[in-house]
């Protein structure tokens, strides 16, 4: 406890820094994955190839990626942006497949009905596809949020500050309180963001609350999403 008290402002700095990297990475992942998922849904053949390639990005180990990104984009190695881009690539790799599943989960009859009511194609996308696929999408977003938050820590290995610094410094100096603080806070950030996502989900899809039918449907969305 004493270590934590003596270093409260430093820990807080690292916590903020951690969130500042994780949140943009997740948001970029969402936007990119939805776009890719949409593309794959619209053009099946091309989509399968693109999604396959995207998901393989995930197998590229993180450290080399953090070295290669700055070379390719000519940005500084030791910048938040470098880590944000790397994390966004991983997030997109994980989420794009789920996004496609999400669009496929929309009942085509609903879409047809909307068309019959005279909605434009764009209108259907914004008002039918996206909202109705949101529950499945959200379950994927929750997964990448948690894994992104955990992954931010590797930035410490290339000088990008985050809660990961508490781990490296704690190990070097043998300060257990520091290591535990790093791990616990990382998990805490993940849990808090996850809870926020659940709340956002409940807020933007109000039709999924209250009724027992909604409850069982919610459970089905959580478990079953199709992946190519």
């Amino acid at each position: 406890m004493t270590w934590l008290e003596a270093n409260r402002s430093y820990v807080l700095d690292m916590l903020l820094q951690h969130v500042q990297i994780a949140v943009p990475a997740v948001l970029i992942s969402i936007v990119a994955a939805v776009a890719l998922g949409r593309l794959a849904w619209r053009w099946r053949r091309v989509g399968a190839v693109v999604l396959g390639a995207t998901s393989l990005l995930y197998s590229v180990p993180a450290l080399p990626l953090l070295i290669v990104i700055p070379v390719v984009l000519s940005i500084p190695l030791r910048s938040d942006l470098n880590l944000i881009i790397a994390l966004a690539l991983y997030g997109t790799a994980l989420l794009a497949g789920t996004a496609l599943d999400a669009f496929r989960s929309v009942d085509p009859r609903v879409r047809e009905a909307a068309e019959a009511l005279g909605h434009s194609r764009a209108g259907i996308w914004w008002k039918v596809d996206l909202p109705l696929s949101f529950p499945v999408l959200l379950s994927g977003i929750r997964v990448i949020t948690v894994s992104t938050v955990s992954l931010v820590t590797i930035g410490a290995l290339v000088g990008i500050q985050s809660l990961g610094n508490l781990l490296t410094d704690g190990f070097q100096r043998g300060i257990h309180a520091e290591i535990v603080t790093g791990i616990v806070l990382t998990i805490l950030v993940a849990v808090v963001l996850d809870v926020l996502l659940v709340l956002v989900g409940a807020l933007v899809t109000p039709w999924r609350r209250r009724t027992p039918r909604a409850r069982s449907r919610r459970r089905a969305d959580d478990t079953a999403a199709v992946s190519a």
Binding site: Y58, D101, S139, G140, V143, S147, D222, V226
Partner: peptide, 11 residues
Amino acid sequence: SDAAPEAAPAK
């Protein structure tokens, strides 16, 4: 379905 979103890997 053939994969649950929760089955996605953690890096």
